[in-house]
């Protein structure tokens, strides 16, 4: 029977994987996916904690986070597509008009 701590450790791991992905991967789509992993780690935390506390708040908040994540993904993909049209590349290191 998994306890709260199991869920927290799992979500912590997922969050760390997402964080590492944002800084280590060199493909914009993978970076966007890493951010999604981070947000889903947060969702897991909310649901697990909500269940532990015996309230539905955590599960409701998850829907808010999912909505926000969807809005962010829409804007993010639009930005990536526009950049790809201009630069024909998905490698963030290729974008050097500004000092990174």
């Amino acid at each position: 029977m998994p306890t709260l701590n199991h869920f927290l450790v799992l979500s912590g791991l997922l969050f760390a994987i997402g964080t590492a992905g944002v800084f280590l991967r060199r493909n914009l789509i993978t970076i966007l996916l890493s951010i999604e992993i981070m947000l889903n780690a947060v969702n897991l935390t909310f649901v697990a904690v909500g269940r532990h506390l015996g309230t539905v708040d955590g599960q409701i908040i998850t829907f808010f986070v999912m909505t926000v994540a969807a809005a962010e993904a829409a804007v993010g993909l639009a930005i990536v597509i526009q950049l790809f049209r201009l630069r024909e590349s998905l490698n963030p290191d290729a974008f050097t008009s500004l000092k990174w």
Partner: peptide, 28 residues
Amino acid sequence: SNEAALKYFVLGTFSTGVLIYGMAWTYG
């Protein structure tokens, strides 16, 4: 302008993730 948007987007959403993770812990 596009590069600025990308940079702001990636770091902005990343910071959102950090913030909401902190909120999840606070809630817990």
